[in-house]
Design a binder for these strands. Structure first.
Lengths: 189, 189
DNA sequence: CCATTCGCTCAACACTTGTTGACTCACCTG
DNA sequence: CAGGTGAGTCAACAAGTGTTGAGCGAATGG
């Protein structure tokens, strides 16, 4: 066996990916503070020092692990705004990427995560606001209510496991939310 | 001065109250994990060991500090359900007691806090559900949507400081939410 | 007024944490 | 095949954590 099955660079990339996967999973499950570098290293079958060598710090590891986080994949257009918002429910209730879960889970206790989420939601609110009919009063506020409503439902479902939400199919939730969202989108407040 | 201005028992009660106040404030500001017994003790001008002596453990201190937490003060009645829900917005946006803030802030990272909040919200959902018109389809789910919506708005405002929500007066938020809530309370889904 | 209680502090333990530097050894290159 | 490079490990440090037991001194009660 003169040649190993994997080149050094390949192994390197693989270990780095394994570390990032373990980190993402643990950050999503326990949040930033309660996830230790040692736990990540163990989950990735690697020495803790290697995690440091690759990512420099726990913070940097977190940033790298959760990157490409987005709550609302696409920017909505004005025609079917409500339907587009409701369509993200499928995504939010169960299909949420681990990076997003990690970010959301840490947002109430880690200022850096809070800032990140706030900025992301602010951007999202701007998008929704712009998609509302121009005649609408208080478009930013309405947009914020759309977004925070979805945030609340997500938290209640994914993080708290509220019993009334637990068994409900996303379609039914969307169906009940639809009239409410339509009312919220009505220009005449 | 044969008699001190405060009896020993008075001093004891006062110190205990001071510790509880400091704990509540710090737990509300930083959450369970990031609040240290030493920090609480310092804020209360007391030795860390005394905190342990009085409360036994950090967990117990937390429980005692946040006690009497409730998100929805009164159980709603069926007539003016929506108005009662909207009326809690004043309370939630700024007037939230520190104990509640502490509990909410820790709910995503501390399983004990998560369970507490989940149970509290479940109970609240039951109450709202019972207050809905008997002809309503999926009353628990609708109730859950009411509660999670308010939760989302609260988080967006109090914890994330979303810009679109920051400057908005509670009345205006309530006014915009009213048609949406009315639609959600409509028996015909 | 003296013995006792008890509020309170001091110093320390045992543990976990993020982080670092020296080291080993397999792989790559000339 | 020899020398270097770099992936990966080992052991340790320094700081911070919850928690504990011995002790001090003032209020208390007989």
């Amino acid at each position: 066996m003169s040649t190993p099955r994997q080149s050094r660079a390949d192994r390197r990339r693989a270990t780095e990916a394994r570390i990032l996967d373990s980190a993402r999973e643990l950050f999503a499950e326990k949040g930033f503070d309660r996830t230790t570098i040692r736990a990540v290293a163990t989950a990735a079958s690697v020495d803790p020092a290697l995690v440091m060598q690759y990512f420099g710090s726990k913070r940097e590891l977190f940033s790298r692990a959760v990157q490409a986080f987005s709550v609302l994949p696409e920017t909505p257009d004005s025609d079917a705004l409500v339907e587009q918002l409701l369509a993200t429910l499928d995504f939010k209730l169960g299909g949420l990427p681990e990076g997003a879960v990690a970010m959301l889970r840490s947002m109430l206790t880690d200022p850096a995560a809070a800032e990140y989420v706030r900025d992301a939601l602010d951007r999202q609110i701007d998008g929704v606001s712009a998609a509302l009919s121009p005649a609408t009063e208080y478009p930013e506020l309405r947009a914020a209510l759309f977004v925070t409503t979805l945030l609340g439902v997500t938290i209640g479902h994914q993080f708290l496991g509220l019993t009334a939400l637990h068994g409900a199919p996303p379609d039914r939730i969307a169906a009940l939310l639809r009239p409410a969202f339509k009312a919220l989108a009505e220009p005449s407040g």
